[in-house]
């Protein structure tokens, strides 16, 4: 019996250990809180890095809320009265591509990248809070019906998005300001944020 008792005890202990090792978070209120906290901290950091970029003028200048593209670090309205037009590409005969080509022009200082255009009106970010931008980003009715995978791909691979880190020189020949986060860190932040459920911090 003693042996049996030891056996049973050992079995319980083993099972207990297995449970503890395998499922402890789900079983411990304390652990869950800790994990959530960790996740939030990491998630917030990713979110903030991502938003530091999205709210930088290199991105924001082409996500206007008034249909007017902006220029420069002080985000002045695009000169000569250019606006969104019918299809985000300017006017019928004077389009974005009248001046902007698929790459930066180093002699004129006119920036360029493939499919140069304004972000669609539904993706207007100008004047929004970071939370509002994120909601708009994730809302399929606003973001061009993009899934999370689509969004990750768009934000980490699209040439026009990545132009922000290769913005070329301005009309004076001066290097345009870069976003405050490196392209690599931005990509990682975007991937992590989505991987962790694309949680929008409540604050």
């Amino acid at each position: 019996m003693r042996l049996k008792a030891i056996y049973i005890f050992s079995m319980f202990l083993l099972l207990g250990l297995i449970f503890v090792l395998a499922n402890s978070p789900k079983f411990s209120g304390y652990e869950i809180v800790e994990k959530t906290k960790l996740q939030n901290q990491q998630g917030n950091e990713d979110f903030n890095k991502m938003m530091d970029v999205l709210t930088h003028q290199r991105c924001m200048n082409c996500h206007p809320s008034d249909h007017i593209p902006k220029q420069g670090d002080e985000s002045h309205p695009h000169y000569f009265g250019m606006t969104r037009g019918e299809d985000d590409h300017g006017f019928e005969a004077t389009t974005c591509n009248t001046c902007h080509q698929s790459e930066n022009n180093m002699s004129s200082g006119v920036p360029g990248a493939p499919h140069w255009a304004l972000a669609p009106a539904s993706m207007a970010w100008e004047g929004l809070t970071r939370t509002e931008i994120a909601k708009r980003l994730l809302d399929k009715s606003m973001n061009g019906n993009r899934s999370h995978e689509d969004l990750i791909k768009h934000m980490t691979e699209d040439d026009l998005v990545l132009w922000a880190w290769e913005p070329g020189v301005d009309a004076e020949g001066e290097q345009r300001t870069l976003p405050p986060v490196s392209k690599e860190d931005f990509k990682i932040a975007v991937e992590n944020w989505f991987a962790n459920g694309a949680v929008i911090p409540s604050k």
Binding site: A93, T95, N97, T98, N105, S108, V110, A171
Partner: peptide, 19 residues
């Protein structure tokens, strides 16, 4: 690409050829 004096057509589209 500010004044437009160099405007010509490339495949029928207006383009500012200095840029």
């Amino acid at each position: 690409a500010a004044c437009g004096a160099c405007t010509l057509h490339v495949d029928g589209e207006a383009v500012r050829s200095c840029s």
